[in-house]
Design a binder for these strands. Structure first.
Lengths: 253, 253
DNA sequence: GGCCCGCCCTGATCTGGATCAACCGGACCC
DNA sequence: GGGTCCGGTTGATCCAGATCAGGGCGGGCC
């Protein structure tokens, strides 16, 4: 079952990125140099002089939305760094119920596996660009550059901490508390609007946000309405919310 | 606020372990050599020749039950390896609600922190022995023995995977599914009874199991009764359950 | 244009687990 | 012994959120 890779290849957004019009030498050493996620994720652990190692080890992929990247249980033969866009990571129960364990954005690394199989499915929610690196290439990179292993440990630790926060959210909090916590967490990671008020961008469908927070979409909708009536938020468009009263959300979370 | 360490010192089970009656040289190099958790946790990454490094970096502590070891938010100046006993790790909301994020047993490392403060509180549920290592000693050990960092990464990855399983449990599963999953997970990590049937040991109070599974103790009690009536389990004592029908639990999980 | 389909919202009803309350039995202390 | 305390269990009731049902709207396609 190598469905995921086949799917990725099939879903590469046309046109499949023509060769850059610069010199041929640029194509390998320069690809990573100009990468927007260059300073994030694993790559941030390397200096400019190490860029050739990185460029030869990885390959960028442009993906349409709703494209699976890794599938839970499949042979984990590669990791992916998100360069742009957003992916959802989720686990599925035998009867089809799904729990989204996280959303990945630029700089996040997906596909790190403990055993041989991926622990979750990852699928784009918007058109995205990811950078593929085979597991063996990652291992080589770690051996040659110990800082990469350190970075990997730091990133995994941050993810573990986030997962424990999510356990607290799912185990203890009410619907209003969950949504408030979620909006606050997102707002801390996004730029405020031109007028300075914080806002959050929600490109994923409401059913996915619900699946992340352990709520049905109907409940999410009702909670958002309640927060709006209370004056804590304003729904600008379907996928953007302005935080009117961060303190109120903080109190509700 | 160094409440945790002060508490630990105060709670060391008397008598405070008299100096071993062997040669003085043994006291440093030999302590780790005879450790029952020697092959587990961080220490398993080191060979016998490295034992002096380990012995000088760490110090064992005997603790009574209900003793806090690390406190959420406190300055994270040390990590602890569990040698024996069991601890509960939990997070607390401002209003006092608590979510247990995990139980730690022999070989587990607690107190790894992303920032400067511990991410959770850890407290013994039974009398336990833990081995304290300062953060700086751990850093030195990692620099001198790169394998320790690799082991740390592997352990953190396993914990992350477990945390994601718990997110799935809390976000999707019903009470019966949660309890069944919990019993199965525990039974996989424990020895079967003399007659070969699997069993689980539950030294922690029911309210703690509930706080781990996102259930009230009343609900846990009712679910256990239901599983017993269904013939899937037998309650031998208050703290030991025999798994009569693993397949039934599997189906219910 | 008109149709369809997916997403979202809202209202009505249902229900799994929480909450409230009472009781039991063992450990501990006086 | 008798009391108290604490953990566990059971029963009765409640309620937050799930489920069921219907309707609106925008975007893609014929």
């Amino acid at each position: 079952m190598t469905f995921s890779v086949a799917t990725i290849d099939a879903a590469v957004a046309p046109p499949p990125m023509p060769a850059p019009p610069t010199q041929a030498a640029e194509t390998v050493t320069g690809r990573c140099a100009g990468c927007s996620a260059r300073s994030k994720g694993l790559c941030g652990a390397l200096t400019a002089g190490d860029l050739p190692d990185l460029s030869t080890a990885s390959r960028p992929l442009d993906l349409l939305s709703a494209t699976p990247v890794v599938m839970e249980g499949e042979e984990a033969d590669a990791v992916f760094t998100v360069m742009s866009g957003m992916l959802k990571l989720y686990k599925t129960l035998p009867d089809g119920r799904q729990q989204i364990t996280g959303f990945a954005t630029a700089g996040d690394v997906i596909g790190l596996a403990v055993g041989s199989g991926y622990a979750y499915t990852a699928e784009t929610v918007t058109a995205s660009t990811v950078c593929r690196m085979s597991r063996t290439a990652l291992r080589r990179l770690m051996e040659r550059h110990p800082a990469v292993q350190g970075r990997l440990l730091a990133m995994t630790s941050v993810e573990l901490s986030a997962a424990q926060d999510q356990i607290l959210l799912l185990g203890c909090k009410t619907a209003v508390e969950r949504v408030s916590s979620f909006l606050l967490a997102l707002s801390r990671r996004s730029r405020p609007l031109a007028d300075g008020t914080p806002s959050v961008f929600l490109p994923m469908p409401k059913v996915d946000i619900g699946a992340y927070l352990g709520l049905r979409p109907e409940t999410l909708s009702r909670v958002l309405r309640k927060l709006e009536v209370a004056g804590a938020i304003t729904r600008l468009t379907n996928d953007r919310i302005r935080i009117e009263d961060p303190a109120a959300l903080e109190a509700a979370a």
